[in-house]
Design a protein around this nucleic acid. Structure first.
Lengths: 179, 179
DNA sequence: GATTGACATGTAAGAACTTACATGTCACTT
DNA sequence: AAGTGACATGTAAGTTCTTACATGTCAATC
C-alpha cells in the first residue's frame, strides 16, 4: 500500500509523469523515506490503472507513458493519510546490529560502532545536501499547508540521523572507557 | 539474512531454545528492532539446520525441538556483525506520511500529526517500560562488552522515539501558527 | 556510419514477509 | 470426564521486494 501511496503523492504534487520519471523521483526525493526500483514501480502502475487510481493520459516518444492521478486516486491517498496508522513493522538493521553488539568483545564492538558512525555520517551529509538544495526548488501545486512537499520528512530524517550519530558517539565513549 | 542473524544472536545470548521460545523472544525483546512471526521462524530454522548453522540438540515433550548454535553459526554471526554495512532499505511509514503531509490542508494535516504523536507516545511508553524491566533481568552469557544484551538498541530506540515526538510537537506548533 | 549512453519499459525468478489455516499435546480447572 | 488455554509446530496462499535479464529508442559523439 505504501508504494502505491508514494506514487499517488508524487503524481499529486508534481503532476502527470511516466514510470521512468517516478522512478527518478524516488531516487531523488522519497528515497530516504521509502525505496522502490523501476521493476516494482512499472507493475504497480499497471495495477493502479486497473484499479482506476491513475490513467494513461498520453503516450509519448520511446514508448513513454504519462500517468495522471484520477479523483478516485486522490480520494484513496487522502483517506490513507488521514486514517492509516503506521503498522511500523520495525525493521531496522542498524538497531539490530546495536542489539547484538554486546556479543562481541569490546575491541570488535568498537570497530562496528565506528563503522555505524561513519555510515550515519555519510547519510547525514546526504540529507543536509538535500536540505541545502531544496531552497532552490519550485513549490509544487497542491501544497496547501504552506510547507514545501517533502520538507517535513527531510526535517524528521535529519533529526533522526543526528540522534543516531549522537548515540554512536556516546556508545563509543562508554565502551571505550571500559576497554 | 537479518532474521537469521537475529536468531543466531538469541541462541548465542540465551543458549539453546525451541522455535516457540525464539518466537516469544522476538515478541519480548527484539520486537522493537526486528519483527518476525512463528510462520517465518520455523522454516528459517529448518534452512539454518540444513546450512549447518544450528543443530537440533534435543527433542522434548509435545514435539518440542531444541536448537543450539554451531561453531559455524557463531562464525557467521560474528562475520555479519563485523562487516555487514546496513543496506538501510529506508522504509518508514511515519516518515512517508510526513513526506506527503503538505498535500492536505492545514486542519487535516494537524489531525494526522496528532495521530502520529499519539502513536509515538504509545511506542515511547512501551520502550520505557522495557527499560524499567530490564534492570531485573539476568545478564546472559556471551555478553563480554559488559553491556546487557539488547540495551544498546533499547537506548537507541528510546532516543529515536523521543526525537520523533519532538518533531511531531514542533511541527504541530509550526503548522498551528499558520492556521 | 558506428558506437556510446541516457531514455524508457518491461519480465522472471527467487527471497522475505503476512495472514490464515490446520493439527495435536499437556496441565489445570470445572 | 469434558473443556479451556497455553504450549508447540507446521503449511499454504498471497503480497512485496530484490536482482538480474531482456529489449528497444533516440541524441550526440567519434
Amino acid at each position: 500500500m505504501s508504494l502505491r501511496m508514494a506514487l499517488l503523492g508524487l503524481l499529486t504534487a508534481y503532476g502527470p509523469a511516466s514510470g521512468y520519471d517516478l522512478a527518478k523521483s524516488f531516487e531523488r526525493s522519497v528515497a530516504h523515506v521509502w525505496q522502490a526500483g523501476h521493476s516494482q514501480i512499472y507493475p504497480e502502475l499497471a495495477k493502479m490503472t486497473a484499479d482506476g487510481l491513475v490513467t494513461v493520459e498520453a503516450e509519448g516518444a520511446r514508448g513513454r507513458k504519462i500517468y495522471a492521478i484520477t479523483p478516485e486516486g486522490g480520494a484513496e491517498l487522502r483517506a490513507w493519510l488521514i486514517s492509516h496508522d503506521p503498522t511500523g513493522p520495525a525493521r531496522n538493521e542498524v538497531a539490530l546490529q546495536a542489539f547484538l553488539l554486546p556479543l562481541l568483545d569490546p575491541g570488535e564492538a568498537l570497530a562496528v560502532l565506528e563503522r555505524l558512525r561513519a555510515y550515519t555520517e555519510r547519510k547525514l551529509a546526504e540529507l543536509e545536501a538535500l536540505h541545502a538544495v531544496k531552497h532552490a526548488s519550485p513549490v509544487p501545486e497542491g501544497a496547501t499547508t504552506g510547507v514545501r512537499f517533502g520538507n517535513l520528512a527531510l526535517d524528521l530524517g535529519i533529526r533522526q540521523t543526528r540522534t543516531t550519530l549522537a548515540w554512536a558517539n556516546d556508545t563509543i565513549a562508554a565502551i571505550g572507557r571500559r576497554a
